[in-house]
Design a binder for these strands. Sequence first.
RNA 1: GCGGGUAUGGCGGAAUUGGCAGACGCGCCAGACUUAGGAUCUGGUGUUUCACGACGUGCAGGUUCAAGUCCUGUUACCCGCACCA
Length: 800
Amino acid sequence: MKYDYLRIEKKWQDIWDDECIFRAEVEPDKPKFYALIEFPYPSGNGLHVGHARPYTALDILSRKRKREGYNVLFPMGWDAFGLPTENYAIANKVHPADVTRENVAKFKSQCKLLGYSFDWDREINTTEPEYYKWTQWIFLKLFEHGLAYKAKMPVNWCTSCKCVLANEEVVDGVCERCGADVERREKSQWMLKITAYAQKLLDGLKDVDYPERVKLQQENWIGRSEGAEVDFNTDAGDVLKVFTTRPDTLFGATYMVLSPEHPYLKKWSDRLNNYEEICEYARQAAHKSDFERSELNKDKTGVRLDGVSAINPVNNELIPIYVSDYVLMTYGTGAIMAVPGHDTRDWEFAKKFDLPIVEVVAGGDVSIEPYLDTETGTMVNSGFLNGMEVPEAKKAIIERLSELGLGTPMVNYKLRDWVFSRQRYWGEPIPIINCPKCGHVPLREEDLPLVLPDVDSYELTDSGESPLSQIREWVEVECPKCGGPAERETDTMPQWAGSSWYFLRYTDPHNTEELASQKAMDYWMPVDWYNGGMEHTTLHLLYSRFWHHFLYDIGVVSTKEPYKKRTSHGMILGDGGEKMSKSRGNVINPNDIVREYGADTMRLYIMFIGDFEKAAAWSSTAVKGCKRFLDRIWNLYGQLENSEKISKANETEIHKTIKKVTGDIEELKFNTAIASMMSLLNKFQDNGATKGDYSILLQLLNPFAPHITEELWQMLGHDGLLSATPWPAYDEEKTKDERITFAIQVNGKLRSTVELDADSTNDEIVEAAKRDEKVQRFIADKSIVKTIVVPGKLVNLIAK
RNA sequence: GCGGGUAUGGCGGAAUUGGCAGACGCGCCAGACUUAGGAUCUGGUGUUUCACGACGUGCAGGUUCAAGUCCUGUUACCCGCACCA
C-alpha cells in the first residue's frame, strides 16, 4: 500500500476533531501544563513557515506532555487589530472586519492542515467586542489607579501621510510606508505609566525561567542607574536639579547643560540677554527628529546662557550654563552637571566651547582625551575627597550633600511611559469621555464594551485625528458625570493592548461576567511555557508583564509573573540564507509543502532544520530527506516480524532512543531527537524489527508526525488512538551497552580501538590496549610511565 | 560607543559539557534494479598521502595525559540599544 499522506492526514484530523481529544477542561487533581505560542496577526499573506516553527515545537511538547499524563492547555487565537488590515481596507474599500474574517479563516484552515493540537473551543479574537470589552475594562482599571493619563508628548509626525507614527513605524528617520521625512510634533496622547513598575519588572525577572539574553535585554531596556540627585543653586536665586551616577566627580563639574526643552529657559527669559538666540536653538533642535539628533552627534552644538550661572555646591564656584541638544528632557531632570575630564560627550563639548577640563580621578591625561576608566581610582583636585578611592568618595559625597540639604541618593530608569494612543480606526476605542467641565471621564463598566462604530471612510484626516472623529453622532455624547455635552475620545489603543492579557482569556474564553473566572485562572495560570520571537522581548513581553503585575496588585490574578518559562525560536530564512520576502520571491508557503510532501514531512523538516533557537535557512532539497525518512518508516511496516516483544538485537538502541527523544524534546533539541529516531530506523533496517520494536518508534515519532504514526498504529491492530497512549518509558539499565568500544590513545593520540565487556576492570582494559597490534607499534621500544582510563570511554597510555 | 551572540566538511548541523571531531540529513561519487530515472536499494565520501602516517573545529598563544569545549589575546560577521548623564 502506498503512503497516501493527503488521505491519511485528512482522516486523522477529522477523527481528532470529532473526538475532541485536545479539548482542555479544568481537572483539579491532574497536573496542568499551559503551553503558549504568540498568537499571530492574521495578515493577508496567510501563515508562513516562520509561524510553523514555533507552533510545531510547542505542539510536539504539548502532545508529549499530554501523553505523559498532564492536563494540557494549548490554545490559539488572533491578534487581529492593526495597521496592515486597515490599510488594505482603505485601499480596497472594504470593512477591516471583513478582511479580518477572511484572513482568520485562512490561517485557521492552515493550522488545521498542519495537524496542530490546538483546543479550538478556546479560540479568541482581539477584535471581537466580547474580547475587547475586557481590554477596555483593564484600561479603565489602569485609569482608576492613576496609571493611564493624557499628556502632551512629542510624537513622530509623517509629513506626507499627515499622521502620527509609532516609534516602530519610523525606520532610519523616515516613514516606514512612504519614505517621507518624519518630524517631531507636540500632541496630546494617552500614556500608560509603565515607569511606575520599572523596579517590579526588574525584580520579577529573578523569579522566572527566561533565557539569559532575554533577561539582559529587558534589564537594559529598563536601564536602571543608581546615583544621586544634586541641587545646584543659581544666581537667579533658584535651584537646578541634576541626576548623576557619579556624584564623586562633582569637583570636576565645570559647567552645566540644559536640554532645549527645559522649562527653566522660559522661566529665566527675563534675565537672559540672549533669549532670542536660545529660543532659535531650541526651535532647531525640535525640528530635528530623534534620528538626526543622535546620528549627527559628531559635532556638539549649544548656546551659553548669558545672564544666569550656577554654583557648584562643593566649592561654591560660579559655573556657566549651556543649552545643548545632547541633553535629553526625557531622562533624569533634563539637566546635567558636565564633568569633561571623565565623560566623552562633556569633553567634546568643553573642547569646542573652550571650557576648563579638570581631572578628578587620577590616571589619564585629560588634556588629550577624557579618562573613562574610573570605576576604581584615586580622587584628586577634589577638596575633602582627595586621596579617597572612588567607591569611598561616592559614599562621602552623598553624605556631605545630604547634610547640606543639596542632594539625595536617587535611582533612574531609561524606561519611558508607554504611548498608548493611535489616531487610527482599527483598534480598541479608548473608553473615555472628554467633558469640558469634568475633564476625562471614564465610561461606566456596565457600558462596556464600547463598540467600534462603522464608518464610511477609514481614510486619515488632515489634522491627524482618528477616522472616528468624523462620526459626529458617535463622538457627541452626554457626560456621564454632569450630563453636559461632551465628546468621546477618538484615539484607539495600539496593537499591543489586546496581546497584553490574551493568555488570561484563554483560560475562560466565553466568560461574560469577568475577564476570566478566578477558578480558571487559579488552575491554569501561570503559563508554564511561552515561546515567541526575540523581536517581542522588549515590547510585548514587557508590556504584558506590566499589565499582569498591575492585575496582581489589584487582586485580579494570583501570580505576579504571567510566564514561568520563556523560550525563543530563530527565524526561518530563504534558501540562500536571506530573509524571506515577497520582493525577493523566496517565500515558502507551508500549503505548497503540505501538498507536495504532506504535513508530517513539513512538521518534521521544520524541526530538523537546525538549532531551534538560531536562524536557519530553508532548503528545498533537505525537505526531501524527511519525506524519505517517512517513506522508509511506511515501507518497513511490510517487513516486520510478527511479535509484540522487543527484540534483543534492538533493545539497547530502543531504550537509548526513548531516553534521547524524551530529554531532547524538553530541551527543544528537536533536530537531534529526529536524528536519533532516524538512527533507530537505520538500526531496524539492519537488524530487522518486530512489531513491538516498531510500535515504540511510532510512539516516539507521534508528536512530530502525528498523522502517519496514527495510521500505522491502527494498521498494526492497536486499539484506540496513538495520541492517547502513554509516553513510552525507558529502563536506565537497558540503555547501557554490554560491549563497549574503547578508544586507545598513545600519548594522547588515537591509535586504535578495542571492544570489551562493559564490566571489564581497568587492568583488563589496559592489558587489552597494550596487546593491541597497532598500539604495539607505538609502544614497542618505549616504557609506559602512566596510564589513564576513562570509564566506558578510552585508555591513554603515556609512553617514553 | 554599550550590551548580547556566532564561527566545526561542498551544505544544514552533531559532539553525554575536558575524553574516538564530523552523529543525522542534504549534496556528491560508484554500483544494483530498470526502456528510462530528478524513483528505489547497496556501498563510499574532512584534507593530504601509493601506503605507514601527517594535518584538521576563524586566527595566535597557553593550561592539561587529553581542548571544538577551559584561560589570555585577536579577527570577521549577526542581533539589540544608542548623546540615558
